[in-house]
Design a protein around this nucleic acid. Sequence first.
DNA 1: TTATACTTGACTAAAATGGTCGGCTTTATA
DNA 2: TATAAAGCCGACCATTTTAGTCAAGTATAA
Lengths: 164, 164
Amino acid sequence: MRLTSKGRYAVSAMVDLNKQQDGPVTLAAISERQFISLSYLEQLFRCLRESGLVKSVRGPGGGYLLAKTAKDISIAEIIRAVNEPVRTTMCENGVRGCHRGNRCDTHQLWESLGQHIYRFLDAVSLEQVCAKDAVLDHIELGKIEDYLSSNKLPEGAVKIEAVS
Amino acid sequence: MRLTSKGRYAVSAMVDLNKQQDGPVTLAAISERQFISLSYLEQLFRCLRESGLVKSVRGPGGGYLLAKTAKDISIAEIIRAVNEPVRTTMCENGVRGCHRGNRCDTHQLWESLGQHIYRFLDAVSLEQVCAKDAVLDHIELGKIEDYLSSNKLPEGAVKIEAVS
DNA sequence: TTATACTTGACTAAAATGGTCGGCTTTATA
DNA sequence: TATAAAGCCGACCATTTTAGTCAAGTATAA
């Protein structure tokens, strides 16, 4: 998982989609409201659909709908959907640094940070972002404590590609 | 503050520097150990010096030294030192989205995430990263709770440049 | 005075990003 | 059943950013 503006565009689009009440929402409409080019939205929604976050209705009157309720969609899922699966870090394949047997010093730092970011984004749902007076600082703190105490490593955690 | 490999290189170099015990450390030596090109290190250390994290000794036998103790240098400082100051997000200058008076929906999300990352990196010191058996997950959790309860907004927090 | 090491600025190759374009398929409805 | 609305899909491309090189300095210990 990487943090790029592509992911941010995707989140904006999903927020917009969630706010529209009835029937399929066309990309053209999202494009106008969010100032994202239609072609780019097509790219993003293809990813979102393939990840099972939205479903499409073709033909006139068609558009996109959320495939699950907003409460069950995390921001992490959205961002992951539009980014390529992470390449393995250099720490594993030994191209530079972190090789010849000695584990690199900063490895754990980046891994820890990556998990930290992942936990944050995974703990925030689309619904929470859409809520008018969401106070994310408090929302996520509780969740994060749960994660840490449960000690499970979230699959697909954020990779801060380590270099040496 | 941005998270790029430039920052990761800088952290690796600082870790290396801190591990060398006596006297100034030459960039040539760091270059060899960390597999970072000398020219690139020069660029990085210029930033680090200008930010007051290291000091240089010129001439033969010269090199670089930490300007403060490792305990007093946070990873956030290192990364900030080698990256340009953040441009204001689009949310403020109204180029696209988030303009015409209505504050963008995702603004708070990215701001919150940015602060979250910042707090993490600010709570970890160079010394901790160098410590052999550091368990960052636990180290940072305590500190983060302090931050949240003390309610102060760290200046220069991480910006996840918001787009809409 | 010379070799070592930092200092500085200009330049550049490669990759990522954020798109565009054109043509296709599905389907409601007139 | 013709047509237009909408999604689907693959190829392509310009710009920016990143990571790095190069060349020409300056300071200083020995």
